[in-house]
Computed example of a mutant assay.
Amino acid sequence: MNGKVSDVIEQPGAPTRIRGSEFSYSPEDFNLVRQTLYRISGIRLAETKDAMVYSRLVRRIRALRHKSFSDYLSYLKRTPAEQQHFINALTTNLTSFFREPHHFSMLANHLAVSPQVKTIWCAASSSGEEPYSIAMTVAEHFGHFDVPVKIIASDIDSNMLEKARAGIYPEQITRQLSPERCKHFLHRGKKHQAGSVRIVPELRKMVEFRHINLTEPRWPLPRQIDVIFCRNVMIYFDKQTQLRLLEKMVSFMPAQGLYFAGHSENFSMAPHLVRPVGNTTYQPAKGKSYG
């Protein structure tokens, strides 16, 4: 979470106010934020996230010199270009290198027995740790960077995509990687960049970053995707949207494709779409190619 809000004060019939804040913040404001975010991104905010919404949006309100939340929301309604800033402020990005490592072991095994794999899509790249972990796994399998596998990474947050493309991280991330991986895949910063590391250019070139809103009708993707990482994303959508997105993703996959879900995501309610083949890992349910 960006920022921290310790107290929310509510009085019957009065606007909600964050202790020590300069902006009034009514339940109507919060509900309009929830409705707007759901409409443009499909993300459903819990009713308990009112303090988070304030802490995330207040910086944008200050930057635009609006006088209130209602002024900002009116501006948002009449200014389509503001929608991306709104989304960037409210989306949560929590990731690390080789998070849920069993998925990367399974990907390596899949590559070993499936030479037909040509395209991998990371559907929520955040700041880049996940797609670069995928790229490391692919490079290690082939033993070099010039691989016959295309890796596409997408996110709804344009700020995160810029950070991911740059591939620059605090030096502490080396604790998440083995010394061998650090040696092969990272450059340590020097002089004014001391204390940071950067993904080597050969690995960065393996990943193509694209801006994709999963709720949009068309995705700029190849016709077939052999492996999809869509982890800890579906939890932000309601069940209806989850099923619609899963069905659409599976439509890109061949029968032998792999779909990696997050540790808190389960698709037992969709046996007509996917079948489990491992820990939070699925394949298309039908015995034929889709799409």
Rank of each mutant, 00 (worst) to 15 (best):
V250H: 00
C230R: 10
T215F: 09
Q176S: 14
E162V: 12
I212A: 08
E208Y: 04
S178N: 08
Q224M: 11
E162I: 10
C230K: 10
R244K: 13
P220N: 11
K191C: 05
L245D: 01
N232G: 03
H184Q: 14
R223C: 03
M234P: 06
R175G: 10
P179Y: 01
F209C: 06
R223W: 01
E208A: 14
I228Q: 02
E180K: 13
P220H: 05
S196L: 11
R244P: 00
H184W: 13
F237S: 09
R218T: 15
V250N: 01
Q224T: 15
G195A: 07
L214R: 05
D226G: 08
K190P: 00
K205R: 14
K183N: 10
M249F: 13
E171N: 02
E180D: 13
I228K: 02
V207L: 06
L214D: 05
R165P: 03
G189V: 02
L245S: 01
C182E: 02
P201D: 12
I173C: 09
H184K: 15
L243R: 15
Q224G: 00
P201Y: 01
P170I: 04
P217R: 09
E180A: 14
R244I: 10
Q240Y: 00
R198K: 15
P220E: 09
Y169G: 05
K190R: 15
I168W: 01
T215P: 00
R175V: 15
K190A: 13
R198P: 05
W219D: 08
T215N: 11
L186K: 08
R165Y: 08
R218Y: 12
K248G: 10
E208H: 13
Y169W: 08
A164L: 08
T174R: 15
I168M: 09
L214W: 03
M206G: 02
L177P: 05
Q176M: 11
V207D: 02
C230N: 07
P170H: 09
L203H: 09
V197T: 11
V207A: 06
I228V: 15
F185W: 03
E171V: 15
V233H: 05
I228P: 03
S196V: 14
N232P: 07
N213T: 11
W219I: 08
E216R: 11
P222T: 08
E162R: 13
L161P: 06
R231M: 04
H192L: 14
R204D: 04
K191M: 13
L186E: 06
L245M: 05
G189M: 03
Q172P: 00
K239S: 11
L214Y: 05
G189Y: 07
W219P: 09
T215R: 01
R181H: 12
I235W: 01
I173P: 12
R165G: 10
G195D: 04
E180N: 10
N213R: 06
V200W: 08
T215V: 15
H192Q: 14
E216Y: 07
P201A: 10
T174I: 15
L177C: 08
M234V: 09
R223Q: 14
E216V: 07
E202M: 13
R244D: 08
T241W: 00
L245P: 02
R218G: 00
E208C: 12
G167N: 05
C230W: 11
W219Q: 04
K248D: 01
C230Y: 12
P179H: 03
G189F: 08
G189R: 06
P201Q: 04
I235H: 02
H184R: 15
F229E: 07
K191S: 14
R204A: 09
D226Y: 01
A166L: 12
E162Q: 14
R218D: 12
F237Q: 09
